[in-house]
Write a protein that binds this DNA or RNA. Structure first.
Lengths: 203, 203
DNA sequence: GGCATTACGCAACAGCCGTAGCGGAAAGAC
DNA sequence: GTCTTTCCGCTACGGCTGTTGCGTAATGCC
């Protein structure tokens, strides 16, 4: 894809590192609105044009920062769909929780959409971000879809279960509560959700 | 709540009407980014300060415009949960579809988050918008929760079904596809979704 | 070494958001 | 009628986003 060796002067990796550090720090402590590209440039000791040479808009920068703080969630079928899905969903919730903004104390259990909502909005605003976000979720979800298929093949789930729909029910409920209704998401809710979803799918 | 009679000079209702018209038109044809408060003021023939006297930020104005284009979705239990829920969810999808931006052709069936994502982001940015949005959804969803309860009491659903969780699965899947994965949402998908959800809940 | 290419820092700019101050207009309160 | 309160239009402003132009630095290619 990308030519390994590019023609002119190479990008300063030191600048990359300083920008990433400054942007991450400022984004978490300020939130999207008060997060300013100018300030990132100053804090990183870099000209603003250097930032815009890497990301065409503030949205692209923010999404890149958020994407970088996403770590892999282990997905593995260990022979118990209920336990495996519960573990996975709880990991997702933890990941979302870690993306809460520093400023907002977020009364315990409160679902603070924070940066997730900004990423969704950025995806809606810019087609290229939308494609990238979708691709990321397709890749992540593929593992869970395989897990569901394995559980079905192992006889834990009905033959005619639709993995995609089943997963939409699980993940959708979480994101719906996070982004729309703002209701709390705890381990108790995850348990209730998995119970409700699996009741119709269990063999 | 609000004092019916206020003290000083009353707000110009003519200005209200012109602002609403101009804002709605410009928002739909431009999208959130290119939608400019200055331009609304010019198009409405009104000073910018008149706008900011009504809405403290651009986000508040946008959310107000979007809220005004939401019409009531009829919810009624007619004795067939599957049909009733399917009808309701399809109405939701239609409503979301109507909020698509004029500019984006949205390849048939494509879920274009458009303004929905912006409202979610605005809710995450401003606590007062968040509260208002949540209250709106609580009110809307209350009708569907009652529908589910009636169906349960009528013996169509299990005794121990949890209406809130069940509804999260349904609505969540739709918004998840719309906002996150961007996968298409059609009547066929709604059918598959309702089938999957009701299978575990049916008595 | 010389050339094309790309990155860097710096400065200036247009457009937008949101605020502040002003004179004047339209209502209620007395 | 007078006073107070609130709205209106106007102007100006600070801060942010994103762009442009310029001189300079670093790399590959010949």
């Amino acid at each position: 894809m990308e030519p390994a060796v590019r023609r002119g002067r190479p990008r300063s990796e030191a600048a990359d590192a300083r920008i990433n550090g400054a942007a991450l720090e400022l984004l978490l402590e300020r939130g999207y609105d008060a997060f300013s590209v100018d300030e990132v440039a100053v804090k990183a000791g870099v000209a603003k044009t250097t930032l815009y040479r890497r990301w065409p808009t503030k949205d692209h920068l923010v999404v890149a920062v958020v994407a970088r703080m996403q770590d892999e969630v282990p997905v593995e079928y260990r022979g118990d769909v209920r336990a495996d899905l519960t573990r996975y969903l709880n990991a997702i919730v933890d990941g979302l929780d870690r993306m809460r903004l520093a400023g907002r104390p977020a009364a315990s259990g409160d679902a603070s959409a924070g940066l997730v909502a900004e990423v969704a909005a950025a995806a809606a605003r810019h087609a290229d971000i939308g494609s990238a976000v979708q691709a990321m979720f397709v890749r992540r979800n593929a593992l869970v879809l395989r897990l569901i298929e394995e559980a079905r093949d192992a006889g834990e789930l009905c033959e005619d279960v639709e993995p995609e729909v089943l997963f939409d029910q699980l993940a959708g409920a979480l994101y719906y509560r996070l982004l729309i209704t703002g209701r709390p998401i705890g381990t108790a809710y995850v348990d209730r959700l998995v119970t409700s979803v699996l009741r119709g799918a269990a063999a």
